[in-house]
Design a protein around this nucleic acid. Structure first.
Lengths: 362, 362
DNA sequence: CACGCGGCTTGGAACGTTCAACACGGACCG
DNA sequence: CGGTCCGTGTTGAACGTTCCAAGCCGCGTG
């Protein structure tokens, strides 16, 4: 051991006195760089965090040393000192197989990308939907993350209330669904996709193709997202003066539901267009058509929602509403950046427009 | 500044003069708990990390204080001291839309769950496949993670070599594909799914149903995974004394490839069974059948690989090989646990068996 | 010429934890 | 009976970074 005074010294004197410094084990530190550049620790720190403070030549010298040694700051030490982890927590719910989890892949990926550009990383953590607070609380108390991205504001989302009164920083994928039991409505930043507008697009698309009897296959009425989408169908129909009576069906989102509902609708109302709340339901509808010897797109038009892998692959291709998940992720990242910089978020809520991907089914 | 003696003191004198105590801002620390329990810092630390060292009543006292204050250790401080982040890095490649990314959801979720049970979290980071080393290097130098889970050992995986000679800890989803240009073969822990066995199952399934002319629709020959699966078809056919000549086709994995190849095969060889390297290719095959007025499962049997959402949803349902991704994740987590505990991994490699999910297409 | 000031740099202290070394009483052993 | 060891608990010192107050220098100003 006894590594001598500094790594970068030209070995002029080599008069290393005593057992001063232990082996260079491990990555270089601020002190290592400072010794090499001939400045103090703090100056190196400034070179990294506040380069404007340094004189030009000093900065160059330090940067040179940093590059030579391949130094990067120890995150733990920085975290300890600044109380900032540069980590974003993303709760990861138990995957419900068969639903739209594939979508999340697009979303998560862009989120990782966007947060990386602002110097942050994404930390996954399991969140038991029953006891969601437990997971969040542990994260907060151990100061493991700086902020959260909440993605499941859907079903009643107690997390949002909890986080808000806990004073935690977070942004939400999903608007605050009118939740005014007590006190003011939530004011956290959020980004969402305008489902109603997407479904309205799909409905208009069918109307433009000459359809007049267009049915809605939705989710149960307790799901705000489903009701939002339904409103899009409703307004599109009314806007063009078309009747909606006995054309709206609700149920769980399964394929089997879609299949049966379609059979029932055809028997009762002979619709020529089916606007569905999800691709899964739309697939059920297409199966029902198939069972009757009908062809989607020729005999009856069908549209879905999510532009899932299935919609893209199935034959005939399923017309579907595609959410701009990449944009959502980027917008959320931007809000996070403001939030973390303690700057005001000028416009907390943002509603993005989805696009209609037209395929053979319509 | 001058944080005073301890937070837990009963305010006997209340003689706090001026600007003495800066409010107990922030979460409780070891010292807070220690004061409350009437023991030293270190004793509290031991209560958490090494409870066996404490006397029974002391332990109870400390645990009581911990619960009362709702204390959890500051991770940054612990990391700084122990050089252990309790984080696992998971590189997140640019999603290639349309391929089997939905699978990863199942995998990632179980991984999060399993690592949580061992007290670890999963950290996502973007990894440019071109410059993979950069991402890993940054993670390592800033001591951001303790280990990696590498999932893309597929195409040439330079990462594995790099990590190995860098001395980094990691486990791989995917076996080391015989890579012996120089030096010994990689010896890192890995878990993989026996694709050949899966395809052999599918092939046997078709043979048992009376099929004799069974074709293979694979990927290009440079993809080890594809060739592995192909070997399963080949061995199953030969094992039952069936010919394979002019029944094997290779190409990119697109639906269009599957469609064309199927048309060509039917014209040339009139197969009654099609074993496909992926669900996507199988969907192309089914489309070709449809175009010829044939029905999958009645006229010609088709099998896929991955048991994707599409296979489950499409009509007729697609028979497919399902990978035990949950088991893979758990096995990897277990290996990580050994690796991180510096215990020897008795059996570094593990090959898991997939299962065949039979549906109407066969 | 003393003084103040701004630009640049510096050493000391702190963040909260764990490691190393050691103190203390009692039991065990030669 | 003296030494050693075990069980239990304590204190000081690190880990690598950033904040704070202060130092140094040259220069313009009263």
């Amino acid at each position: 051991m006894a590594r001598g005074d500094a790594r970068g010294t030209t070995g002029a004197g080599r008069g290393r006195r005593r057992t001063e410094r232990p082996v260079p084990e491990g990555p270089p530190t601020l002190a290592t760089v400072a010794a090499r550049a001939g400045v103090s620790r703090q100056t190196v720190s400034n070179a990294i965090n506040n380069p404007a403070l340094l004189a030009e030549d000093t900065l160059a010298k330090v940067e040179r040393a940093i590059a030579d040694l391949g130094y990067s700051p120890n995150l733990a030490a920085r975290t300890l000192r600044t109380r900032t982890t540069r980590l974003i927590g993303l709760p990861f719910e138990p995957a419900q197989e068969g639903t739209a989890n594939a979508l999340m892949d697009r979303f998560v990926h862009t989120l990782v990308e966007a947060t990386r550009e602002m110097g942050y990383h994404v930390l996954l953590f399991a969140s038991d939907p029953e006891e969601a607070e437990v997971g969040y609380e542990r994260m907060l108390r151990s100061t493991a993350v700086d902020a959260f991205v909440v993605t499941d504001t859907y079903r009643g989302h107690p997390q949002v209330d909890y986080l808000q009164q806990r004073g935690a920083l977070f942004v939400a994928f999903g608007r605050p669904w009118s939740h005014d039991d007590d006190g003011e409505p939530p004011t956290h930043p959020w980004v969402d996709v305008d489902g109603a507008a997407g479904v309205a697009q799909a409905t208009h698309h069918l109307i433009d193709r000459g359809h007049e009897v267009i049915a809605w296959l939705g989710w149960t009425a307790d799901q705000p997202i489903g009701e939002d989408r339904r409103a899009g169908w409703m307004s599109a129909m009314r806007g063009r003066g078309l009747s909606t009576t006995r054309l709206s069906v609700r149920g769980d989102g399964t394929m089997e539901y879609g299949r049966r509902a379609t059979h029932a609708l055809i028997d009762a109302r002979r619709p020529t267009g089916l606007v569905c709340v999800s691709d899964t339901v739309a697939m059920g509808a297409m199966r029902a058509l198939h069972e009757r010897g009908l062809v989607a797109g020729r005999d009856i038009a069908v549209t879905g929602f999510d532009d899932s892998q299935v919609a893209q692959t199935v034959s005939p291709g399923l017309t579907s509403v595609r959410q701009p998940l990449e944009e959502v992720a980027r917008a959320l990242a931007h809000r996070l950046e403001l939030l973390l910089g303690h700057r005001p978020v000028e416009e907390p809520g943002l509603l993005l427009q989805p696009t209609l991907v037209v395929r053979e089914s319509s």
